[in-house]
Simulated scan of single mutants.
Amino acid sequence: MTQFVLAGVLGLLFTVGTFLVLRRDIVRVVWGVTIIAQSANVYLVTMGGLSGTVPIVGHGPPANPGSVTDPLVQALVLTAIVIGFGTTAFALVLTYRVYEEHGTIDLDELGETGGEV
Score class of each variant (00 low, 15 high):
99 Y>V: 09
90 F>V: 04
70 D>L: 03
78 L>C: 02
80 A>H: 10
75 A>I: 14
105 I>Q: 14
23 R>P: 03
117 V>H: 15
53 T>K: 05
100 E>L: 12
61 P>W: 14
64 N>A: 03
23 R>T: 01
74 Q>P: 04
26 I>Q: 07
101 E>P: 03
8 G>M: 12
100 E>F: 11
79 T>W: 13
80 A>F: 14
77 V>Q: 03
107 L>F: 15
3 Q>P: 05
41 N>F: 00
17 G>C: 09
62 P>S: 07
7 A>N: 09
97 R>D: 06
35 I>P: 08
47 M>H: 08
98 V>F: 10
107 L>R: 14
105 I>R: 15
96 Y>V: 09
30 V>Y: 14
48 G>Y: 03
110 L>F: 10
54 V>W: 12
51 S>W: 15
102 H>N: 06
14 F>E: 07
75 A>S: 12
57 V>E: 09
108 D>T: 02
23 R>V: 00
83 I>A: 04
97 R>G: 01
90 F>P: 01
54 V>Y: 11
112 E>L: 03
117 V>W: 13
24 R>S: 00
113 T>V: 05
32 G>E: 15
76 L>R: 13
86 G>T: 04
56 I>P: 04
57 V>A: 05
107 L>D: 05
52 G>Q: 08
112 E>Q: 02
19 F>P: 01
14 F>W: 09
11 G>D: 03
35 I>T: 13
79 T>V: 13
6 L>Y: 10
84 G>E: 06
89 A>E: 07
97 R>Q: 05
44 L>E: 05
60 G>F: 02
41 N>A: 00
61 P>Q: 13
23 R>I: 01
95 T>W: 14
46 T>S: 07
106 D>W: 04
111 G>R: 09
112 E>C: 00
73 V>F: 01
68 V>A: 10
26 I>F: 15
50 L>T: 13
67 S>Y: 15
42 V>W: 05
16 V>Y: 08
90 F>W: 14
3 Q>E: 11
3 Q>C: 12
48 G>V: 00
16 V>F: 07
34 T>A: 03
101 E>W: 11
59 H>T: 06
1 M>Q: 06
34 T>G: 01
49 G>P: 01
38 Q>C: 08
15 T>R: 00
37 A>P: 11
3 Q>S: 12
65 P>S: 10
82 V>P: 02
10 L>M: 13
103 G>C: 10
46 T>Q: 05
30 V>F: 14
70 D>M: 03
18 T>K: 02
23 R>Q: 09
90 F>Y: 13
52 G>W: 06
12 L>T: 02
47 M>K: 05
79 T>D: 00
68 V>I: 15
78 L>E: 07
78 L>R: 08
112 E>F: 03
116 E>C: 04
43 Y>L: 06
